[in-house]
Design a binder for these strands. Structure first.
Length: 324
DNA sequence: CCTTCGTTCCGCCATG
DNA sequence: CACATGGCGGAACGAA
């Protein structure tokens, strides 16, 4: 059984702590057996969790046998991370364990140096501070979570749910993840719709001569681009562009571009009150109808439903975990 | 839901 | 000859 160990440091945010406990703890395989064994460990006897104290049954040594270590946020991200915790996390990573942070848990992870040279995210309000303190970490504040293979990080509290479900999907497939989401009363759309929430595909498939073009595409996604435009930018023929794209990105140019547009649209639906039609127009869909239809086929629900589902869940999160 | 029209994208092949 | 490019045409797809 896959071993999950959650590291509870003093000041641990209860919401972040319970997210992995609940999600992984509820995940079931097809035959009904638990998909994970979940343990919470701590440095000392008791953990100060703010409004309450927590007694854990395991010490940090539990981390050594973990397949995945989860690092929840702590109430003061600026606080020094205990050396024992740093050492334990470094050992775990050295031993091949997967490590994921939730919310400002990214500060703890960054303190180990493991994030150096990697992309990561954290709670939006703390992103600038993280980037300032750890310049070697490539901080992306605009995404729900980042998957760098064995190093993952998620944004604000609610995004921790997405991250955990993402891991369930990676480990046991979409069906198990969907069932877990259902049991946890998560809106389905976030796990049903594929990887639209993953900010960056895992390690950029090297040899990306198209990399600059991709960057340019992302920046100009709002403009009405045609294949010819893109080919011109890449200074190659449309034929070659199509071929290279398939080889390097594994997708066709326009299909990929639309995915970027939809990702941006999701973000706008989450973060703003702009009307659906406006959002569609702003990310580069000429016709509102087309926008709605494409959104639906890729994400699984209509833009309106998506916004509602997201709002209801972040409200809950904001209520339970007003972080920093 | 259907229909029309333009675009995309890929197999095939010539060319560098 | 191995390899990459790009033009051509048509089937499939997307936009309206």
């Amino acid at each position: 059984v896959h071993e999950i160990v959650v590291l509870a440091l003093d000041g641990v945010v209860a919401f972040d702590l319970s997210t992995p406990v609940e999600v992984f703890g509820r995940a079931r395989l097809f035959d009904g057996r638990p998909a994970y064994r979940v343990r919470v460990c701590s440095l000392g006897e008791e953990v100060d969790a703010g409004p309450f104290r927590l007694r854990t049954a395991w010490g940090v040594e539990a981390i050594q046998s973990a397949d995945t270590v989860i690092v929840p946020g702590v109430s003061d991200p600026r606080a020094d991370v205990p050396a024992a915790a740093v050492a334990a996390l470094q050992d775990a990573a050295g031993g091949g364990a997967r490590i994921a942070s939730i919310c400002v848990g990214a500060f703890v992870l960054a303190a180990t140096g493991l994030l150096d040279g990697h992309r990561a995210t954290t709670h939006w309000a703390a992103a600038a501070e993280l980037a300032r303190r750890y310049p070697a970490v490539d901080v992306d504040p605009d995404v729900l979570f980042v998957d760098e293979g064995d190093l993952l990080s998620s944004a604000g509290a609610a995004a921790g749910l997405d991250l955990c479900l993402h891991l369930v999907r990676r480990d046991h497939g979409a069906a198990v993840a969907a069932e877990t989401a259902r049991v946890s009363v998560m809106p389905l759309e976030r796990d049903g719709g594929q990887s639209q929430f993953i900010a960056h595909e895992p390690p950029a498939p090297a040899g990306g001569s198209l990399e600059p073009v991709l960057q340019w595409l992302i920046e100009n996604a709002a403009a009405p681009l045609t294949l010819t435009d893109i080919a011109a930018q890449a200074s190659m023929s449309t034929r070659s562009l199509n071929r290279q794209f398939r080889e390097q990105v594994g997708d066709t140019p326009l299909h990929w571009l639309n995915r970027q547009r939809l990702r941006r649209a999701q973000w706008l639906l989450e973060a703003t009150d702009r009307p659906v039609e406006e959002v569609g127009a702003q990310v580069g869909f000429i016709s509102p109808t087309t926008f709605r239809e494409r959104f639906r086929t890729l994400v699984g629900v209509s833009p309106q439903t998506y916004r509602r589902a997201f709002r209801s869940r972040t409200d809950t999160a904001a209520m339970l975990a007003p972080i920093t």
